[in-house]
Design a protein around this nucleic acid. Structure first.
Lengths: 184, 184
DNA sequence: TAACATAAAGACAGGTCTGTTCATTTATTT
DNA sequence: AAATAAATGAACAGACCTGTCTTTATGTTA
C-alpha cells in the first residue's frame, strides 16, 4: 500500500515500455490505480517523478551489483571478470529495457534541462563506479579502462535493446575481457 | 529553393537539438519558413518525415565514410585503423548529436512501431557495413569484430553526447584498435 | 495574356498533455 | 468514538499536438 513505491513501479514500467514523453500522468495514475492528487503530493511535478525514477533505478542497480561482487577479493582481475559476467546478466534479464539515464537523456536532449543534467550525473557515477573497480583490480590506467567498459556496456545495452537476441551483451563481454587482459 | 531538402534540414536540426517528439510540425514549418500544406505535400505524415530524415542521415554518413575509405587497399588492417580514425572524427564534429536511429528508437520504443522497426533496420545496416570492412581487412571473425566495433561506436556516441569533452570517442577508438589487433 | 501549378497564411477540429482545485470518502491515530 | 490525515474522483484551465481545409498570392508555362 506504499503509494510512493507503487507510483514509482508503475512509472518505471511505463517509461521503459512506452517512453517517458509518451507516458502521460493520466496513464500513470490509471495504471497504478491512484488518484492524480496523490501523485502530485508525492511528486510535485512529472520532472521530479522522472528524477526519482532515475535515482531509484540507479540505486537498485548498484545494490544488485554490490551484493554479488563484495565476496571477491581485491587486487585481482577476477573482480573485473566477474563484473563483466554480471553486467551481461543484467542486460539479458527480460526486465531490462536500456539504461534509464540513456533514455532520459535522449528524450530530454537540452543540456540545460534538469533531467538531462541529472542523467549526466548518473552517467559520470557509473563511470566512476567502474573505474573504482578497475583500480581495485590493479589495472594500469583504471580511469581509461573504466571509461572503456562504460562505453562497451552502454553500447551493448543499446544494441541489445534495438536488436534483441543478436547477442550484443555477450559480444560486449568478450570485448571487455580482451580490453581487461590488455590493461595489465 | 528545394522545399523537400529545406524541410529535411530544418527537421534534422530540430530533431537533434530538441528531440523528435518535442519538435512539433508547427515549429518545423515556422523554422524552415514554409507553409504547413507544403510540408504535408512532401511528407504525408510526421512519421514519414522522420523516416526520410533517418534515411537521409544514414546515406550522408556512408557517403562521407566511403569517400574517405575507398583509397585504402584491401586485405590489410589499415582499413580498420583508418575507419576508427574517421568514426572518431565523425563523433567529434560539432554537428554530431548522437546516432539518429538511436534517438529515434529510444523515442519510439514500441517494437511494432514503424519508426522503431526502421531504426532497427538502420542499426543492422551499420553492423553489416562494419562487418564487411572487417572481412575485407582479413579479420578472423569479421561478424564478431563488426558487432564489437558497432557496440563501441554506438556507446561512444552516447557517452560523448551525454558528457561532451570527456574524450569518449578517443577512448573508444583506442579500445577498437586493441580489439582489432586481437582479432588477427 | 491566359491557364495552370505551387506555395503561403491561417483557421479549424479533435485529441492529449501537465497541473490545480474541491467536495467526498476512507484510514489512521489518539 | 472523535479528530486528524490521506486518498479518491471528477471537473477544469491553458497549452500543445497532428492533420485538414480554404482562400489568397506567387510563379511558370503555353
Amino acid at each position: 500500500m506504499n503509494m510512493r513505491e507503487r507510483i514509482l513501479l508503475t512509472a518505471a514500467s511505463l517509461f521503459e515500455s512506452r517512453g517517458i514523453h509518451a507516458s502521460g500522468v493520466d496513464t500513470i495514475i490509471a495504471e497504478s490505480g491512484i488518484a492524480k492528487a496523490t501523485l502530485y503530493k508525492h511528486f510535485p511535478s512529472k520532472n521530479l517523478l522522472i528524477v526519482a525514477y532515475l535515482r531509484d533505478k540507479s540505486d537498485r542497480f548498484y545494490e544488485w551489483l554490490n551484493s554479488r561482487l563484495s565476496s571477491k577479493k581485491a587486487n585481482s582481475l577476477d573482480i573485473l571478470v566477474e563484473l563483466c559476467e554480471l553486467v551481461e546478466q543484467w542486460i539479458m534479464t527480460p526486465e531490462f529495457h536500456g539504461l534509464p539515464f540513456h533514455i532520459a537523456s535522449v528524450e530530454f536532449p537540452d543540456p540545460t534541462h534538469p533531467i538531462n543534467q541529472y542523467s549526466a550525473v548518473l552517467a559520470v557515477e557509473l563511470q566512476g563506479y567502474l573505474s573504482k573497480i578497475a583500480a581495485e583490480a590493479g589495472a594500469k590506467d583504471p580511469e581509461a579502462l573504466g571509461q572503456q567498459l562504460t562505453i562497451l556496456f552502454e553500447g551493448a545495452a543499446l544494441v541489445e535493446r534495438l536488436s534483441p537476441g543478436i547477442g550484443a551483451a555477450k559480444r560486449a563481454k568478450n570485448a571487455a575481457l580482451t580490453l581487461i587482459r590488455a590493461s595489465i
